[in-house]
């Protein structure tokens, strides 16, 4: 991993954040049985904002972002996504989910479908877009992630990096307003990490609202408007990347940063 100083020279992407709020967490608490995973989470994300979340294993990062598209339910507090309150009365979970794209650590492509079918499944069956149009759009996104030639292969025939780029394209095909990434590069071999990060940087440049759980500090420095550190279910510290890396306030943050930078 590159040291912080080296990253200094990297140009940072201009912020695309607007004043419009798209995600709001207010005193959110969540338990797994007796285990308190999320503790009084307050979080406001503006449209176009890019947030990188880091923190030790088990600190609740995945749980936090999975609450955004309601793959997990919280028990206390309010979560508002795109003006919809996520609670028990929510009629249209599928609608929220189709507005929020998500990329997983383990890709989770559909192994029985070809790449292009993976991409068009949502548009055709959820958005009810005519097949021809869905195929055209899917090809455009495959070009954007630079693997149009793989369209008719099956996921198992692709490398990990290619699969993850397909997973990103699959989410983009739904025209989401928000993209969530849960450690998108940590299951990849080092030489494939860059190709995925490049795609994510390009996506960031289009003004997409993104929440990325990642320990790729170089990526955080180029792309993030805000870096957030979580530990034991709390947001311990958040700041713009330069300050966050160079002048961490909290001892827990300092410890964590020193650990990941000296691996």
């Amino acid at each position: 991993m590159a040291s912080v100083d080296e990253q200094e020279t990297q140009t940072q992407l201009a912020s695309a954040a607007s004043s419009e709020v798209i995600i709001e967490f207010d005193k959110v608490n969540k338990w797994y049985g007796d285990f308190h995973v999320l503790k009084d989470i307050d979080l406001v994300v503006h449209k176009g904002e890019r947030i990188v979340v880091c923190g030790p294993s088990g600190s609740g990062k995945s749980t936090l972002i999975r609450c955004v598209n309601r793959l997990e339910e919280h028990q206390q507090g309010t979560i508002i996504v795109d003006d919809m309150t996520l609670d028990k009365n929510l009629k249209n979970i599928d609608h929220i989910r189709s507005e929020v794209g998500m990329v997983f650590q383990s890709f989770n492509l559909f192994p029985h479908l070809t790449i292009i079918e993976n991409l068009t499944l949502g548009p055709i069956w959820v958005r009810k877009i005519p097949k021809v149009e869905a195929l055209e759009a899917a090809m455009l996104y495959l070009e954007r992630v630079k693997i149009p030639e793989q369209a008719n292969k099956y996921p198992g025939q692709l490398s990990g990096g290619q699969q993850q780029r397909v997973a990103i394209a699959r989410s983009l095909c739904m025209n989401p307003k928000i993209m969530l990434f849960d450690e998108p590069t940590s299951a990849l071999d080092p030489e494939m990490i860059k190709e995925v990060l490049d795609v994510m940087v390009e996506l960031a440049a289009t003004g997409m609202t993104m929440i990325v759980v990642s320990h790729e500090m170089g990526f955080a420095k180029t792309v993030a408007d805000r870096v957030m550190f979580m530990d034991e279910g709390e947001i311990v510290e958040q700041n713009e990347p330069h300050e966050f890396f160079n002048h961490p306030q909290h001892d827990r943050t300092k410890l964590f940063l020193s650990q990941i930078l000296h691996q």
Binding site: L71, S106, N108, G122
Partner: peptide, 24 residues
């Protein structure tokens, strides 16, 4: 993960079962 991936592209219960889970 297959269920979750299906949910994230907006498929509901029947879509998830019929298009993703059952065929596999």
């Amino acid at each position: 993960g297959q269920y979750e991936a299906a949910h994230t592209v907006g498929l509901g219960y029947w879509g998830t079962m019929g298009l993703v889970v059952m065929p596999q």
